[in-house]
């Protein structure tokens, strides 16, 4: 039996979903299975070719119904196993809102060609665009409700550090709960082609300790604690 996805120890009582952790958990099954299948079949094919390369007379075997049927059963079991793992992980990620009550919420709006990060509670709005290159600032280990939307075409809000993205659709708000489990500075980008300067829709993510985040928020977004502390 697979172990349950690990929980981050230092998470606040409300945070139940560590996005990066769940991805890694699923990765640890899919990657070895995938690589194993590719290597195994490649080996069988190469060896079969080398062994039967110089034969003069081929055999005439061209059916093996029993064997093939058992093999199909194995394949179905494999698909079932993979689906079980996927559903277990997806249930955690997608239903986070059902059991989390984030204190912090951030409105993320994609607009050609920048991101707006609006913190209603602190009346802060950061723009990722060419002018300010302002970052997304978040506290570590705390669930955050992101309200993702778009002002024009479809964009996709992607932060590789937490292995997650969600489309920003016009005139629609998607809400997802996400938790950052490591402090540091990361990058994010737009993952849905949105026209001319799609490549420029990159942004910086600062994941801060709780106190550093509070300092930043209290300063109305003026402080830059990531410069000093690290």
């Amino acid at each position: 039996m697979p172990r349950a996805p690990p929980r981050e120890k230092r998470l606040s009582p409300f945070a139940l979903v560590n996005n990066r952790g769940i991805y890694s958990w699923l990765f640890s099954f899919y990657a070895p299975i995938g690589i194993g299948v590719v290597v195994l079949y490649t080996l069988i094919i190469v060896v079969a070719v080398l062994v039967y390369r110089r034969r003069k007379v081929p055999n005439r075997v061209h059916e093996a119904h029993r064997l093939e049927l058992s093999y199909v059963v194995v394949l179905i079991c494999m698909a079932t196993g993979l689906l079980y793992l996927t559903y277990t992980a997806e249930h955690k990620v997608d239903d986070a809102q059902a059991y989390e009550r984030p204190a912090l919420s951030i409105d993320v709006t994609g607009a050609r060609w920048e991101w707006l990060f609006h913190y209603p509670r602190y009346r802060i709005t950061n723009e990722s665009g060419a002018v300010g290159r302002q970052p997304l600032v978040v506290p570590v280990n705390e669930p955050i409700a992101f309200h993702i939307s778009s002002d024009d075409v479809i964009h996709s809000f992607w932060i590789p550090e937490i292995r997650f993205k969600r489309d920003a659709m016009p005139h629609h708000t998607e809400t997802v709960d996400l938790t950052f489990s490591r402090r540091g500075t990361f990058s994010g980008s737009c993952a849905e082609f949105c026209g001319l300067l799609h490549a420029d829709m990159v942004f910086t993510v600062h994941v801060l300790s709780d106190s550093a985040f509070r300092t930043w928020a209290a300063s109305g977004g003026k402080a830059a604690p990531w410069r000093t502390a690290s």
Binding site: Y23, E90, V93, S156, A191
Partner: peptide, 14 residues
């Protein structure tokens, strides 16, 4: 098959 798993595809998509 990797990208057929939504959780893995959240990262791989695009």
């Amino acid at each position: 098959i990797w990208t057929a798993s939504p959780v893995l595809d959240y990262h791989a998509y695009g």
